[in-house]
Amino acid sequence: MSQPRRFTETALILAWRNLHNFYTSPALIIPALLFPLFFFTAFAGGLSNVENVPGFDFPNGYTAFQFGFVLMQSAAFGGVFTGFGIARDFESGFSRRIMLATPHRTAMLAGYAISSFVRAVVVGAMLFAIALAVGMDYSGGVLDTVGLVALALGVNMLALLFASGVAFRFRTIQAGPLMQTPVFMVLFLTPVYVPQALLHGWIESVAAVNPLTFVIESGRSFIAGVPEELLLAFGFGAVAALVLAIWSLTGLRKAEQAGG
């Protein structure tokens, strides 16, 4: 078999295995589906009065505003949870089997990435359907929707690259908090509940320099059908992807050095 074909095959079969595990074990799939839903209902339901605050200028209402955040949050956590899976595979010794059998160890990372993408798409689609069902006002056209999905998948990939770098280095599920906490913090240091202009105090300054702010605001602008801050959002994504890809691949190298 040719080398590129072998790489693709390896990545695909590993992605199949990860997804198979995900969709056949309730302990994995139920939290993955319920958590975003839970955040969405708690934020959009409990805080809907916030849209009456003077200066709240998002045209499509609070449900759509929160959907913009929760979609990105679920995409990010999909990547982090895939990182958990990598750590578990190292802990159980399963990764050794993979490393012995495959000539392309980067195909391993590709396999995890594919499964992380598929998960993000499934969870995002479910969230989308529910948001529309409860009456979200969505003004995005086809192109806006493509942009929104691209942003979410980008966030998913960044989180996966970050978490996999941690997983490759520690190779134990006990490193879970190290994957989760930074992602959680970066997510919540953005305009989560109100538009950036209504932020107050230190969070105002932090959110202003947090690159993820552009991503979230840009996602919301797609929902409103008037895309904004695209260059900043996608530009940041590209730079971060490069940096985190290096972080992840050097981690993979470290894992090889340590014998899986």
Partner: peptide
């Protein structure tokens, strides 16, 4: 974590949701 995590959230939320006091 039981000490730091809640303080982090309260710090974030008090800035993020201060606008809600205008309701």
């Amino acid at each position: 974590p039981a000490l730091i995590f809640p303080l982090f959230l309260v710090a974030v939320n008090s800035g993020g949701l201060n606008a809600a006091t205008k309701i």
